[in-house]
Design a protein around this nucleic acid. Sequence first.
DNA 1: TGATTAGATAAGTAAAACTTATAGAATGCC
DNA 2: GGCATTCTATAAGTTTTACTTATCTAATCA
Lengths: 315, 315
Amino acid sequence: MDLAQLEVFLTVARERSFSRAAEKLFRTQPAVSIAIRKLEESVGQPVFVRGARQAKLTDAGELLHDYAERMLNLRDEIRKGMEDLRGLRRGHVSLGVNESSIHALLPALARLRQLHPDLHIAVQRTYSRDVPREVLNYRLDLGAVSFVPQEEQLSAVEILRDELTFVVYPGHPLAGRRSVDISEVGGEVFVAHIVESPFRWRVIQLFEKHRVPLRMEVELPTIESIKRFVQMGMGVAIVPRMCVRWEVERGLLVEVKIQQLKMPRHLYLISRRDTRLSHVALALVRLLRSARASPRETDSQERNLGAPSAGCTDP
Amino acid sequence: MDLAQLEVFLTVARERSFSRAAEKLFRTQPAVSIAIRKLEESVGQPVFVRGARQAKLTDAGELLHDYAERMLNLRDEIRKGMEDLRGLRRGHVSLGVNESSIHALLPALARLRQLHPDLHIAVQRTYSRDVPREVLNYRLDLGAVSFVPQEEQLSAVEILRDELTFVVYPGHPLAGRRSVDISEVGGEVFVAHIVESPFRWRVIQLFEKHRVPLRMEVELPTIESIKRFVQMGMGVAIVPRMCVRWEVERGLLVEVKIQQLKMPRHLYLISRRDTRLSHVALALVRLLRSARASPRETDSQERNLGAPSAGCTDP
DNA sequence: TGATTAGATAAGTAAAACTTATAGAATGCC
DNA sequence: GGCATTCTATAAGTTTTACTTATCTAATCA
């Protein structure tokens, strides 16, 4: 039994004639006769009564008819489903990000949903260090992290250029300055992230290199709480710029350039090399990379998404 | 896309390897590779990611996987269904009979259900003259009538030998006699069936031939009512024997032989010549014909079925 | 009865599916 | 790091299958 035979079968059943079915199928009549004979051999009994005037279904034929229609409908559904996948009208992508990066990805995610409302997008909050493992384990299609993972089964593409920046509260003595020397912040109380991270380490090294004291007297668990603490005038902080952009634009925090602080902290999108990305994942990658190319648009959309303090919690 | 390809596809998906799938399928590895390639061509996109260690489904592959399983399940259901048809565990038959014949068929119908409880049996009460048309119109698979229809597209086989018989009420003067001459019933009031039928006509001719008056002063619409009227002592009647057997056995009516009355009224099973009978119909025909061969068994079963007066209403 | 129509059968051809043999890429082992 | 191993792809040849044309048989219809 195969689908071609079933198609011939249904045509004969509809036309009630082998010859007419042959015409409809653009075949010759013997081709139809043989196809039906094979089908009958495979089901073990005749499916048509070859009458002189017309062919009629036997009871086995009636049974087969129902099933044949269902099977061919399934085939059509497959075709439709594949079309949907290609046309991004169906599909799924899972993305792991840490909280400080969610914010930066929201515009692209929103755009993806705008363009293709039927897609299923699952964004999962994951600690940065766990993202590569989750992607390798096939639990995530994609991951966004601020480092290039060592695992060589993973590929990484840069999707966002960011850097660490120095922020103070609006009433701070340095708030009016556009740029300061690193030595000028030696007396400040730094509100730091309690989580171990390469960036924290590099900041410490930078201050040591310039022999400037770094008073990390407050350590908080989320970037959100660090920002609040700084806003309350309890200290200053060095944080990813994308995490404070909203506050800076509204004057809730003031960004001051430290001349010696040049610490890029880019965002990379990682995925398995061995697994072809799904259509949806590919579309998301394209959007993220194009968003990187046009940061202005990203900004404007980002503002439209409300809740500016979402994310920015852990590295 | 065809079912063989889907089978290969599912095996590869299960084994996560082309080579292992080839083993399971008793094919060579290139055969599997090519089958999958054809399948991918037909769905328009890859269904597997050929990893170095194992093959994994793409998103299109995941979609296809669901459908492939459903399609192959349908194929298995077809096979099962065909087996059921052959084994009479599934099927349907429709049978048209007039009310006076239902009774005679009940034993065979009961036996069919005993042997094959899953079959669907639809017995339809139909006027005798309409039965051939209904069978020709494919509204009935089989019909039971007391004549051989003229339509040459119909075939008829005898399933029951019966004859007309003369009955009186127990207190009737002739009730004690086993056999009488036709001239002796000339004075009786006959309760007749009001429906025109060949048998009624032949009875009238019989009496005319022997120059015996036939006083048909009461005409009733059903054999059931005729029997009651005779029981009430309001007259005598000539009816099919099978319609009064139950009453005669219990002494509610008395059968008296009229020496000149030899009027066989057999029951025939009719069906279309051009349509192969379904498995169920064939089984029923076999049962009915074998019941005819062993009337004793038919009798005993018939008694077990209760409701003796069911049927026996119109010719 | 002859013409017509429907399906089966036979023979030949084109296409497909499968085989063996071989090549190329990636992994794992020493 | 190189070599053996494993996995899939490709090529070439063979068998099998499906289709075509041509012919035959049975049944209907005028």
